[in-house]
Computed example of a mutant assay.
Amino acid sequence: MGDKHATERLAGDAAGIARAAELLDSGGLVALPTETVYGLAGRADRTATVAAIYRAKGRPDFNPLIVHVPDVAAAERLARFDDRARAIAARFWPGPLTMVLPLAEGAPIAAAVTAGLPTMALRCPAHPVMRAVLEQAGLPLAAPSANRSGAVSPTSARHVLATLDGRIDAVLDGGAAEKGLESTIVALRDGGGWQLLREGPIGQPALAAILGPATPVSEARIEAPGQLAQHYSPGKPVRLEVVDARDDEFLLGFAAVAGDWSLSPSGDLAEAAARLYEGLHRAAASALPRVAVAPVPDAGLGRAINDRLRRAAS
Rank of each mutant, 00 (worst) to 15 (best):
R55V: 10
A56S: 11
A56M: 10
G58L: 09
P60G: 04
P60E: 07
D61M: 15
F62N: 14
N63Y: 06
P64I: 12
P64R: 09
L65F: 07
L65W: 03
L65E: 10
V67T: 14
H68G: 03
H68T: 04
V69H: 04
P70T: 07
P70F: 10
P70V: 05
D71Y: 09
V72P: 01
A73K: 14
A75M: 06
R77Q: 15
A79D: 01
A79P: 01
R80S: 10
F81L: 08
F81M: 02
R84F: 01
R84P: 01
A85V: 00
A85P: 00
A85E: 02
R86H: 14
R86S: 06
I88D: 00
A89M: 03
A90H: 12
A90V: 04
A90Y: 02
A90I: 06
F92K: 00
F92A: 01
F92Q: 00
F92M: 00
P94Q: 07
G95Y: 03
G95E: 03
G95D: 01
P96D: 04
L97D: 00
T98R: 03
T98E: 03
M99V: 10
M99L: 15
M99F: 03
V100M: 08
V100L: 12
V100N: 04
V100Y: 04
P102N: 08
P102L: 11
P102G: 03
L103N: 01
L103I: 09
A104S: 05
E105I: 08
E105R: 14
G106P: 01
A107N: 03
P108V: 02
P108D: 02
I109A: 07
A110Q: 04
A110L: 13
A112E: 15
V113L: 12
V113Y: 11
T114I: 11
T114Y: 12
G116Q: 05
G116P: 02
G116A: 13
L117N: 10
P118R: 06
M120H: 08
L122K: 07
R123N: 06
R123T: 02
R123W: 09
C124F: 05
P125R: 07
H127P: 14
H127A: 13
H127I: 12
P128N: 14
P128W: 14
P128Y: 15
V129I: 15
M130H: 14
R131W: 12
L134V: 08
E135F: 13
E135H: 15
Q136Y: 08
A137K: 10
A137M: 11
A137F: 07
A137Y: 05
G138R: 11
P140N: 09
P140C: 09
P140R: 07
A142F: 09
A142H: 06
A142K: 08
P144M: 10
P144V: 05
S145I: 11
S145T: 13
S149G: 03
G150V: 07
V152Q: 03
T155P: 07
S156P: 03
S156Q: 10
R158K: 13
H159F: 07
V160C: 11
L161M: 13
T163D: 08
L164R: 04
L164T: 00
D165C: 02
G166L: 05
